[in-house]
Design a protein around this nucleic acid. Structure first.
Lengths: 180, 180
DNA sequence: CGGAATATGTCAGCCATATTGACTTATATT
DNA sequence: AATATAAGTCAATATGGCTGACATATTCCG
């Protein structure tokens, strides 16, 4: 019953192209671009026995020092059980430290150490270089074009996450305004 | 000992911003954009008990019908063992069929069925819609700007993969734009 | 022809990252 | 004092990767 018993197992020989009403070029380019983009830091991370999950945690802790666990989970959109192992390793390795919240001692504020700051800079470096090279190579005069496009790709209800990042690109959309 | 015993477990309180010599905006936007971009098809895939790995296989088989297993592995940059389970399920479910190669009967040429073609279109639809909306919302007049940038993000030695795709965007670098 | 190389498939085990659900501990709120 | 909240933890499960080893069919080559 797992097999499909229908008669029409006929192979379709025509390639799906961009003219088939869907936007395959960019779909595909996003796949390739993101794959190679994320491959840069992998070697560096492997030296510490880390993976991409560690990278993301480290990134946002560096970006918003002092954020608590709930806020981090909100940004990453994962569960606390998923975060647990990764965060524990980053703390054990001395890349991140936890402090009790001042207002609320139940909360744990997460901060990078000098080691954690150094690592995220090392990880960002090749990615940044790749982006700079791509902008130049593609002849993109205004970086904001790319920023606006990428931001517009994000689910509207999650864009506040981006806006809340310190010094984040305050890229305006057309006709969209944030709500307090 | 696994713990870092150094004295400098001092929390760094200054956020890392774009001015810290690295290109954090776009790094971050790529993370958010890709996350939401890939989330679109997940619901549809789940209906068939599939995941993103199935999506990628289905995509490239639809894009280049008749490609063989080795070629597919080359494009996806994974091992045959990783591909095996996913491909088997897509064949069992009647989304993909295999034919013996004509020149070389050892090879298996992979083709989508009508069912497979229908599914990839269903998966591409929300992604395509998202891209179209983002281009408009960001006020991107020339789609080729985005295409050039994304392509330039790909490792040079892998760009031939993109160029070999049928009807792929023949995006020139260095701003020499031409459209279909 | 016969042996080597190749394309594919498969078995087994491992790892990383995610999930859900249930429960504990410390602290805050009412 | 009771309840709610923030965080941590244990257990089980799924997905999608990986390596290594080996089987089978087919092609290539001497």
């Amino acid at each position: 019953m797992s097999k499909n018993a229908e008669a029409d197992q006929v192979p379709i020989r025509s390639p799906l192209t961009r003219d088939d009403s869907v936007n395959l070029d960019i779909i595909e380019l996003l796949f390739f671009a993101y794959r190679d983009f994320t491959s840069d830091p992998d070697q560096i991370l492997a030296d510490d026995g880390f993976g991409r999950a560690h990278h993301r945690v480290l990134h946002f802790v560096n970006r918003m020092p002092g954020l608590n666990v709930a806020e981090l989970l909100e940004v990453l959109q994962i569960t606390k059980q998923s975060l647990a192992r990764v965060l524990k390793q980053l703390i054990d390795s001395g890349h991140i430290v936890q402090l009790h919240g001042l207002r609320d001692r139940r909360q744990r504020e997460l901060y990078p150490t000098a080691k954690g700051r150094a690592l995220i800079l090392a990880l960002a470096s090749p990615q940044s270089r790749r982006i700079r090279a791509a902008l130049e190579e593609a002849g993109v005069a205004e970086r904001s074009v790319i920023e606006r496009f990428l931001k517009a790709m994000v689910n509207p209800e999650l864009r506040t996450q981006i806006d809340n990042l310190p010094g984040a690109a305050s890229v305006n959309h057309r006709g969209e305004q944030e709500h307090g």
